[in-house]
Amino acid sequence: MAQMTYREAVRTAMAEELRRDGRVLFMGEDIADMGGSQGVSKGMLAEFGPERIRNTPISEEAIVGAAVGAAMSGLRPVVEIMYMDFTSMAMDPIVGQAAKWRYMTGGQVTIPVTIRTQGGAGWQSGSQHASMLENWFTHIPGLKVVMPSQPDDARLLLKAAIRDENPVLFVEHRDCYPRKGEVGEDPEEVGELGVGRVLREGSDCTVVCWGGMPWLALEAAETLEQEDGISLEVIDPRTLQPLDLGIILESVRKTNRCVVAHEAVTFGGFGAEVAALVQEHAFDHLDAPVLRVGEKWAPVPFAPVLEAHVVPGAQQIIDAVRSVAYATA
């Protein structure tokens, strides 16, 4: 085991897979000399060279489209979209092409492409560089969506994504990059998509959260324990599609209360899906309605006060948990 940051864990996963499989290549904007806008791929050009670490023009649609075509015909590309907002520039290749081609061709092709992207609010980067849009993609049959919060999960699940035979969207929250953790070193070790993780055991309320949120939920758990004596169980599904509902239901049957927290806008977000599934399958176990925590109904604004007003933090999780904890059946 080695101590490393989430950023290094993502890099390690890509490097291990590039070493392991000559069909893997990595492309994106400013990913070569600069190592990506977030420094994730720093040093990879030196090891793998410009054929496999492909610096691209600013052409999201072409980059993803080409990756999809290459994936159909023998390569296993990993693509980086600099900000999650810019997946909108590549919507057709992701949604119209990658997600559907296998289906439409009656299973004649596989599309083993991994689309990595990152984002998140809290940096005053303004409305066009701060959105969390995972629900756009969880709504598309044919795509898998992975969004881990922990460094070790980032490594193992990115490796799994690259080895997966399907198009996988791999979402990194910007706040996670400097987070440190113990990460394994066996290059053959690989994670499994669709398996959630209990990040903290607790008995009074379940918080289901992903992306950057689990770190805030863990903070909230400390506060709730000290100030309210509430024991929070924090569950990170790690993969949103496929979703490990089992681990969530098991927890809710124990705690009888559930809050779903994500940074994306609440209305129409993936939290709604989780809440619906929980009440469908564990209605009799619930002592309170499932509450959602998410961004308010606005684009992410620039000014720090405004941004803090719309984007959820640990306090919003605390408030929601208190609300369901004191509710009676």
Partner: peptide
């Protein structure tokens, strides 16, 4: 600087 007197009332910042 994200102030209320800003041309976009602090909504946009440099990039918007």
């Amino acid at each position: 600087m994200g102030r209320i007197t800003g041309v976009c009332q602090g909504k946009g910042g440099s990039m918007h």
